[in-house]
Design a binder for these strands. Sequence first.
DNA 1: CTGACTGCTTTTATTTTGCAAGCAGTTGGA
DNA 2: TCCAACTGCTTGCAAAATAAAAGCAGTCAG
Lengths: 172, 172
Amino acid sequence: MSDPQRSGCPINLTLEVVGDKWSLLIIRDLMFGNRRHYRELLGGSIEGISSNILADRLKTLLAAGIISRQDDPSHKQKGIYSLTEQGIELLPILAQMAGWGYKYLPVSDELGIRARLLMEGGPKMWSEFMDELREIHLGVKRRRRAGPSVGERLQAAYQKVVADKKAGATTA
Amino acid sequence: MSDPQRSGCPINLTLEVVGDKWSLLIIRDLMFGNRRHYRELLGGSIEGISSNILADRLKTLLAAGIISRQDDPSHKQKGIYSLTEQGIELLPILAQMAGWGYKYLPVSDELGIRARLLMEGGPKMWSEFMDELREIHLGVKRRRRAGPSVGERLQAAYQKVVADKKAGATTA
DNA sequence: CTGACTGCTTTTATTTTGCAAGCAGTTGGA
DNA sequence: TCCAACTGCTTGCAAAATAAAAGCAGTCAG
């Protein structure tokens, strides 16, 4: 319950909140996978998180003010998890991690495409995406732009890689 | 020894390498604390890492190609740990984490000042600092600039806060 | 030749994690 | 009205990671 913090160093404090193997993946799924319910987060995670860990991390992230939880009007037992502003601002960390991983680790094609686009897009794209997240998770209206949103572009690029791979597998 | 990776997602892969509570702190000390020997890393860590964990993480980081180790000519048992290019390029992740922690967590004055300067300096300052790290850790000569280096400026700012705090404590 | 120092290893206890099952409610369809 | 499927989570237990303390063989300066 209580956390005897190891030091007042900002990097250390950040690690104490999200420096485990699951928290940032949950946040990733909230951000990029648009999973908002417990079962979605549980089943949708490619890495296969277990239910007790997920429940525990959601509690921790809630307590840390990184996510929030509201009741789903469509079902009395369902909860909708949302990112808070504080949670949305984790995006640059995730983006940098994705970029580094893309550059140095054996990333799969399908899962790497988003990282590549985010790297190429840079901070300007990140901040546009954060505005989209503010609209989705916080209900903050944003100034509409021409063309597809960053979220849509990332999704479309992912779909295309998956489709291409499938086509390649059948012809080759 | 072998790591059955959970997924080919770049964020997940990055977390599998440096996503524990200690690895990034060791890298932080290598980067900002200029600690290069085992004992320095062991004793200098404000968080108090234990020796077995440190030994284990150094092994892991070595295997991952994030740091390298050379013998110290001055002492047959001493080793000098250095960041590789791959390790140096973790700086933006650390900088973003520091910035986020500085903004949202109860960071101490002394330890927060570097985070603030890195945030204010932005990517341009980070890349200048990375060049300095390349010189220190990789022996790559860099183009000299006028005035103190980023490393020196961070260090000076830290010292100043410590000194001010001490003075404040005695007068107040 | 001795006492302090070097990078680690070993041992043991505690905490965290992972897996499988289960549970009290809710909901929609028959 | 009843039941099967689904809701978010909890429980029990084994395995793994972590933490604290002590120790160890070699090195080096005086």
